[in-house]
């Protein structure tokens, strides 16, 4: 019996390790490929370059010549950081309203908010485009920041709601007796306890906005405003077929911020997913 258990456990480990290699190999290969010549990228399978070629990062960084990856990276941050901040503010406020107040139609409105989780965003893309165009918001980052400010992604609101519900009501009540109004209670009492949840919202929204492609493709037109995703795609289009290592190098640049964030904050990803996924 014991032997069988040991056997099944070792099979499990072998499977897990093999899978880990398969999953991660492409990413590691990508790093190696940034230092390979073209012949080596397609001629060999190994990860480490035999005749390392340096300079792919430097050459690739120049981008189109007129606009390089410094511009694209700065643009990405200009797009992502306000979006993240607005998402935190709006999702905290709305979740607080839903989880700590009782008002007419609350249940209905909450269900409505939850149901928008299942509303396919692609259905809204045409009318929203027309709407933003009429407002003169095209070719700016407003199509990203304004929806964030208006809590349009219910995922985050729901995540905060779940978290607020886990905090004991006695906290609010004792503060109320001390004469605090509801906003002070939120800011002074509840928010300090929500750090983990707020951090989850931040990391998710950062990664999603950073990776967003379809919407930036539609809303952002001038190259000077391109975030990294569009810049990379542009480099791929105009880059001659001979600069594969440069494209690999810039792909690494493009995924580096989310990967670094993930490594630092992985605990929050796990918690965030676990809190929203359950209780459905």
């Amino acid at each position: 019996m014991r032997k069988r258990k040991l056997l099944s456990l070792s099979v499990s480990y072998i499977l897990l390790i093999l899978l880990a290699i398969v999953m991660i190999y492409p990413l590691i290969w990508m790093v190696g490929a940034a230092f390979k010549s073209n012949e080596e990228i397609f001629g060999t399978l190994g990860i480490l370059p035999k005749n390392p070629v340096y300079g792919a990062f430097k050459a690739g960084w120049k981008g189109t010549g007129q606009y390089g990856f410094s511009t694209f990276l700065i643009n990405s941050f200009k797009l992502v950081i306000p979006t993240v901040i607005f998402t935190v503010i709006s999702s905290v406020l709305v979740a607080y309203g839903f989880s700590r107040f009782n008002f007419p139609l609350k249940k209905f409105l909450f269900m409505l908010m939850l149901s928008t989780l299942m509303l396919p965003s692609i259905v809204l893309i045409i009318p929203r485009y027309i709407f933003f165009k009429n407002f003169g918001w095209l070719d700016s980052y407003l199509p990203f920041t304004i929806p964030a400010l208006l809590a349009c992604n219910s995922f985050f609101t729901y995540m905060m709601c779940q978290f607020f519900r886990g905090l004991p009501l006695e906290l609010d009540e004792s503060a109320k007796i001390d004469g605090c109004n509801s906003f002070i209670i939120l800011v002074r009492i509840l928010l300090p306890l929500c750090k983990a949840a707020i951090f989850s919202v931040m990391v998710f929204q950062f990664v999603w906005t950073w990776n967003n492609f379809l919407e930036v493709l539609i809303y952002v037109n001038s190259i000077s405003k391109y975030p990294v995703a569009l810049g990379l795609r542009l480099t791929m289009d105009i880059g001659s077929e001979f600069d594969w290592n440069q494209i690999m190098a810039m792909s690494i640049v493009a995924i580096a911020p989310p990967v670094l964030l993930f490594i630092v904050a992985q605990k929050y990803f796990v918690e965030g997913i676990a809190t929203t996924g359950m209780k459905n």
Partner: peptide, 24 residues
């Protein structure tokens, strides 16, 4: 009933009406 709740969920109400319901 505490109507202050509406104030807190106001961003979402606006977002839902302007950026989800009306576009739909």
């Amino acid at each position: 009933y505490n109507y202050a709740g509406y104030l807190y969920i106001l961003p979402w109400i606006l977002g839902f009406l302007l950026l989800q319901l009306v576009p739909l």
